[in-house]
Amino acid sequence: MDVFMKGLSKAKEGVVAAAEKTKQGVAEAAGKTKEGVLYVGSKTKEGVVHGVATVAEKTKEQVTNVGGAVVTGVTAVAQKTVEGAGSIAAATGFVKKDQLGKNEEGAPQEGILEDMPVDPDNEAYEMPSEEGYQDYEPEA
């Protein structure tokens, strides 16, 4: 019985440690998101679009440190934060509304985080759909 109880105690310690790591990862992701939003706020009209992409990228980098179902929630929060940063930029006159959601080359930025393969159960990952990809044929 002692062996059984000791095993359960060790398992509990492992769960607590994993929860603490997840909590730490979420806190880091939130900190990076805040950094990115402050970065966007300090940019001029020309830099705002690039700044919004930076927020998304920093958040995406930190999301990889967070495991399990938390990833889905962090990704949703990050996307809403990026959308909010863009709205703030438009409201303050840093950028025109028609410039939001495009990178410096004018290509749409939507789907940055949505296409990231995420499995809350950590069982399997699927690649994003290939609808947006084109076949590449090298020139002879």
Results as ranks from 00 to 15, higher is better:
1 M>G: 15
1 M>N: 15
4 F>P: 03
6 K>G: 10
7 G>K: 13
7 G>N: 07
10 K>Y: 15
10 K>N: 10
10 K>E: 02
12 K>R: 14
12 K>G: 06
13 E>Q: 12
13 E>C: 06
13 E>M: 05
14 G>N: 02
16 V>T: 11
16 V>S: 05
17 A>D: 02
17 A>R: 07
19 A>W: 12
20 E>M: 11
20 E>H: 10
20 E>Q: 08
21 K>L: 11
21 K>F: 08
22 T>C: 15
23 K>T: 11
26 V>I: 11
26 V>P: 00
28 E>W: 14
28 E>K: 09
28 E>G: 02
28 E>T: 11
29 A>K: 03
29 A>F: 15
29 A>I: 15
30 A>S: 04
32 K>F: 13
33 T>L: 14
34 K>Y: 13
34 K>G: 02
36 G>E: 03
37 V>P: 00
38 L>Q: 05
38 L>K: 02
39 Y>S: 09
40 V>S: 01
41 G>F: 12
41 G>V: 14
42 S>E: 08
42 S>R: 03
43 K>P: 00
43 K>C: 09
43 K>H: 05
44 T>E: 00
44 T>N: 01
45 K>I: 15
46 E>Y: 09
50 H>K: 08
51 G>E: 01
52 V>G: 03
53 A>H: 07
53 A>T: 04
53 A>F: 03
54 T>V: 14
56 A>I: 07
57 E>K: 06
57 E>F: 03
58 K>Y: 15
58 K>S: 04
58 K>V: 14
58 K>A: 04
58 K>T: 07
59 T>A: 14
61 E>V: 11
61 E>H: 10
63 V>H: 01
63 V>N: 01
64 T>W: 14
65 N>Q: 09
65 N>V: 10
66 V>R: 03
66 V>L: 12
67 G>P: 06
67 G>M: 12
67 G>D: 01
68 G>S: 12
70 V>W: 15
73 G>V: 09
73 G>Y: 14
75 T>W: 06
75 T>I: 11
76 A>S: 09
76 A>E: 09
76 A>H: 10
77 V>Y: 01
77 V>T: 03
77 V>H: 00
81 T>L: 09
82 V>T: 02
82 V>P: 02
82 V>K: 08
83 E>D: 05
83 E>Y: 08
85 A>F: 13
86 G>D: 07
86 G>K: 10
88 I>R: 04
89 A>N: 03
89 A>D: 05
91 A>H: 04
91 A>S: 03
92 T>W: 15
92 T>H: 12
93 G>E: 02
93 G>W: 05
95 V>W: 11
96 K>V: 13
96 K>R: 04
98 D>K: 10
99 Q>I: 13
99 Q>R: 02
99 Q>N: 08
99 Q>P: 06
100 L>M: 15
101 G>A: 04
101 G>H: 14
103 N>V: 11
104 E>K: 01
104 E>Y: 15
105 E>Q: 04
106 G>Y: 14
106 G>V: 07
107 A>V: 04
107 A>H: 15
108 P>M: 10
109 Q>G: 02
109 Q>V: 04
110 E>Q: 03
110 E>K: 07
111 G>V: 15
112 I>M: 13
114 E>G: 08
115 D>L: 13
115 D>S: 02
115 D>M: 07
117 P>A: 11
117 P>I: 09
118 V>P: 05
118 V>M: 03
118 V>C: 06
118 V>L: 05
119 D>G: 13
119 D>C: 12
120 P>R: 12
121 D>V: 01
122 N>A: 01
122 N>T: 08
122 N>F: 14
124 A>G: 14
125 Y>A: 15
125 Y>K: 08
125 Y>L: 13
126 E>I: 02
126 E>C: 05
128 P>C: 07
128 P>L: 08
128 P>N: 07
129 S>Y: 11
130 E>T: 02
130 E>W: 08
130 E>I: 06
131 E>V: 11
131 E>F: 07
132 G>P: 13
132 G>H: 03
133 Y>G: 10
133 Y>V: 05
133 Y>T: 09
133 Y>F: 12
134 Q>H: 11
136 Y>P: 08
137 E>S: 07
139 E>R: 06
140 A>P: 13
